[in-house]
Structures are given as C-alpha cells and as structure tokens.
Amino acid sequence: MIRDKTHQEQVERWANFVRDNPREKWKPAIDALINSQYNMAAKFYKNLQKTSEGRIIYERLKKERLKLKNNN
C-alpha cells in the first residue's frame, strides 16, 4: 500500500500536539469531531422520517440492520 506522505506528517503533527499539550487543549476538538459524527447520523435518520418516501427507506435500513427474528 502506498502511504501518502502528507497524511503521515499530519498524523505525526497531531500526535505530537496531543502528547505535548494538556488534555484541555486538544480533548474538546476530539469530542466535537466524534459527537458531530453521531449527531449528523441521528439528524439524517430523523429527517428521513419526515416524508413518506423517507420513512420507507428508514424502515428498510432498520430492518436490514436489526436482524430481529419473529420473536417479539
């Protein structure tokens, strides 16, 4: 696999920043990044449920993901 040099450099820069600085300096940035991923996904699924077409897609996604058997 060819690894991009600039990506590698960025990993190093960020890791050094994390290692050399107190948590208060870098943790909020990580939290914002991680929370935004889940919040964006939740928002997308919430929006899907606003239209009839979206609700069909939502149910299909839900069914595929939750492979529940007929045991409710």
Partner: peptide, 13 residues
C-alpha cells in the same frame, strides 16, 4: 490506511 495511522499515532504518543 486508518490502521497504519492509528499505529503511527500510538508510536508517537
């Protein structure tokens, strides 16, 4: 790719 980057990150830390 993400695995190599994770490993590098831990190596730097």
């Amino acid at each position: 790719d993400k695995d190599y980057k994770d490993a590098d990150h831990l190596r730097f830390i």
